[in-house]
Design a protein around this nucleic acid. Sequence first.
DNA 1: TATGAATGAGCGTTCATTCAT
DNA 2: TATGAATGAACGCTCATTCAT
Lengths: 187, 187, 187, 187
Amino acid sequence: MIDRILSATAQVLAEKGYAGLSTNRVAAAAGVSIGSLYRYFADKNELIEQLRARSSADVLADLTGALTAAVTMPARDGVHHILSVLVHAVQRHRAVTTAMIAEAPLGAHGNILPEVERQLAQMTRLFVAVHAPGLDPLEADARIHLAMGVTLNACLRIALDPPPGVTEDRLISLTADLLVLGLVPDL
Amino acid sequence: MIDRILSATAQVLAEKGYAGLSTNRVAAAAGVSIGSLYRYFADKNELIEQLRARSSADVLADLTGALTAAVTMPARDGVHHILSVLVHAVQRHRAVTTAMIAEAPLGAHGNILPEVERQLAQMTRLFVAVHAPGLDPLEADARIHLAMGVTLNACLRIALDPPPGVTEDRLISLTADLLVLGLVPDL
Amino acid sequence: MIDRILSATAQVLAEKGYAGLSTNRVAAAAGVSIGSLYRYFADKNELIEQLRARSSADVLADLTGALTAAVTMPARDGVHHILSVLVHAVQRHRAVTTAMIAEAPLGAHGNILPEVERQLAQMTRLFVAVHAPGLDPLEADARIHLAMGVTLNACLRIALDPPPGVTEDRLISLTADLLVLGLVPDL
Amino acid sequence: MIDRILSATAQVLAEKGYAGLSTNRVAAAAGVSIGSLYRYFADKNELIEQLRARSSADVLADLTGALTAAVTMPARDGVHHILSVLVHAVQRHRAVTTAMIAEAPLGAHGNILPEVERQLAQMTRLFVAVHAPGLDPLEADARIHLAMGVTLNACLRIALDPPPGVTEDRLISLTADLLVLGLVPDL
DNA sequence: TATGAATGAGCGTTCATTCAT
DNA sequence: TATGAATGAACGCTCATTCAT
């Protein structure tokens, strides 16, 4: 039931945009009474938040796989792989992501993908520790914080608003270069 | 009066968020009748757009100054200077920026300051042409597109959500390094 | 509920006139929330249209009965009967009629009861065909068009703004004479 | 000034319809401040009422001429002449008449052309007294009341919503026959 | 548990009217 | 006298939320 409602939410979002997302419409799309919707979700915010969480978890699953694969690759290749997986994950959730970025009052829900950022940051800390062991931890954290912004922003741009005339793969490569250089310039 | 209303808009935005921004609320906050608001602004959209334009113009003025100053500096110092000015401009317009950018922090199109990005991109194109004349134009444009995302995103993070334990100046320095490396790696 | 709202609409119309007819006022008069009103009527127009349709159907029912009865009567008596029924139907729907017809008493298009006029016109065409078979069809249609105006206008005058000193029945008789003479002068 | 405002009112009525008639718009169209408008007209109602009165006076002037001419004609010709003049007068004021019939809350202002009806009724009383001296006065008044409705309604229909396939002159002739027959059947 | 009719605060917007200048 | 900026009640309408069944 919860799943049915969340899927309907995503569908309404895709079809009508954030402005067209009403609880009554979601309930109708889910083939569920509005009363039932409120049995499973305290309010509209929670509905949105859980949809975001669900997308986030889905992306996270992909990311975990990518991270596992990446550890056995050369540094730059690993970064490239992770970025590529992220870009495709964002594209898969285009509807939710677009609607939320473009229109949702996200102030209430924080970042769109905080879990993803957290997991990614953790992994990156490991990566930095391995490849630049001499770096001051605070300095490393600062770099990682910035890098997270760069990573997520770049993935969103590449997935949802790519510049014309350049392949997606080239954009990912450029971003990977940027990140590796930014994180461990001496590599 | 126009000023009073726009300021009230920024204030309501800061206090209630984008979703809580209503014309009646703005009028009340401005100590003005709702009728007066509609004498000066055709509709709610225009109100928002003018607030954005006003912030944009303000930031743009700073940016133009910074760009002028930057041309006479060594490349990295110039970038650092520009970033610094941008960070402070964002801080000055925290309310607008938070409501309109930071609520969609990874914003692919979430640039409420397209004029700023445009001007910055133009300047960056010049910079790249000077420092990396051999670069393929399409490739250069792709890099610039990414760099714009990085720049604006980093400025927002530094201004509105800085990581603890590191000075703002250090963060700006790191970003400057990242950008210069990313744009003209052979420098 | 629908009935309650439509009755309230008629009541507000009677008390405040067409210009004073607001959806909120209707809802209040019906002892119903404004939200409920909009559950049953898509918008204000539909509310008005359904009230009109309902009155129209009611009048039409009377009219149909009267027409059936009239065919077995001598011509003048039949016309008299029909007029009488119409006058009473108008009186019964005084509120709606007053608001929508009588406020534009000379109404060229002011027929809020087009179905009634249509049905009446059809019957009249038959009547003319029977009693004045030699008449040119276009000429007949013109007479009928005028006669419809005369009929409805007279009924309204008799029902809502009768001249003093004469019985209603006498007025109806005069109108019947006028109509029969006007339609088939040679009768 | 008063004239300028009334003309502007008629113009706005013609261009925007009754629903688009606002005092501010009228003032703007008249090239006069809204404050001045309210110096000359107590409120919007008065503005409308005076416009109606002005049109009425204009029609009345024509009517008076027609009546004068009609007294020297044979009865039916006189009636035909009067109707013809009325039809053209209504056509000349098409904008005002249409707007007011179709949309104005005339409940507040009564008939559109009460002065015209009054004058016409007076003249008709004379006509009946001459041509049917034996008629009971109350009965005569009833006939006249009905005839006024017929006359004005027919003129409006002929002027604003004529049936197709028949000339205006024929319609006027039919109406004249109807009226003469209805008023003094023994003629 | 599930339903969906009912609610009503609040939205963006209009416009007749006032009054300080 | 003339101005027009300012007012605010009221409009049509939406939608998150409740609660009797």
